[in-house]
């Protein structure tokens, strides 16, 4: 069930459901850890996605019922998952050949910042004392055909996350295709950012106010 947002804008579930609508039937999909994982709960009627998890499983199923967990069957977030009939296991070089070699259709990732050119920053604040951790994000953004970003429109302190130029260390340059936030759907086009849709109760002016780069 999609839980509606209490105020204006989309809830996390609604954002995930909105992104799921743009993923074609039969797509091979990799979902990042966190909000992107919600996408699997909102596959549109009549469509099937095949899920890849980079730790070595194609054909990942939903989380197991409590008590049914298999400790050696996990996703990239290290949480227990299941597998569907027709699933396959493989080692990491094959898994990242699928990613880097352009065999996956869609990945959905979280973001700290996205620039008007589609640069993505989602792995490090670059602050002293922070433990840098990159995982598979840099491979996903260069290899997967379509990179969708699912994120709140602004930070907890109200700063725009969609910016002219990322100030955090980059994950990849010119890699993001579309951004789904609690306020809007934004396409990264060759000429810049295009506002495709606003959430119910949200005006275009509000989206522009909260975006740190020009929106066509």
């Amino acid at each position: 069930m999609v839980t509606p947002s209490p105020g204006a804008g989309w809830s996390r579930e609604e954002m995930a459901a909105r992104a799921a609508r743009d993923i074609p039937d039969g797509a091979y999909v990799n979902l990042g850890i966190g909000i992107p994982e919600l996408v699997a709960r909102f596959v549109p009627e009549g469509r099937t996605f095949l899920y890849h998890t980079e730790n070595g499983l194609l054909g990942m199923g939903p989380p197991p019922a409590p008590g049914e967990e298999d400790p050696e069957l996990i996703n990239a977030g290290k949480r227990p998952v299941t597998m569907i009939p027709g699933a396959s296991f493989f080692h990491h070089a094959d898994s990242f050949a699928m990613i880097r070699g352009g065999h996956l259709d869609v990945c959905v990732l979280g973001a700290m910042q996205v620039s008007r050119e589609g640069d993505l920053a989602n792995w490090s604040t670059g602050e002293p004392g922070a433990i840098p951790a990159v995982g598979g994000a840099m491979d996903l953004v260069v290899g997967v055909k379509t990179v969708l970003v699912l994120t709140q429109h602004v930070t907890k302190t109200g700063e725009p996350k969609i910016v002219e130029r990322c100030t955090y260390p980059l994950t990849g340059r010119r890699v993001v295709s579309r951004i789904y936030t609690d306020l809007a759907v934004i396409e990264v086009a060759r000429e810049g950012l295009r506002l495709l849709e606003t959430a119910p109760g949200v005006t275009e002016d509000e989206v522009r106010d909260k975006t740190g780069a020009p929106l066509a």
Binding site: V134, M138, G172
Partner: peptide
């Protein structure tokens, strides 16, 4: 990066001292 780590290890086992990858280009 995770895929580069895997491929560096694979290359080590396969006798390939270096390789080019698109991963991490333009990043620190």
């Amino acid at each position: 990066p995770q895929g580069t780590l895997a491929e560096r290890i694979r290359a080590g086992g396969a006798g390939i001292p270096a390789f080019y990858t698109p991963c991490s280009v333009g990043t620190p």
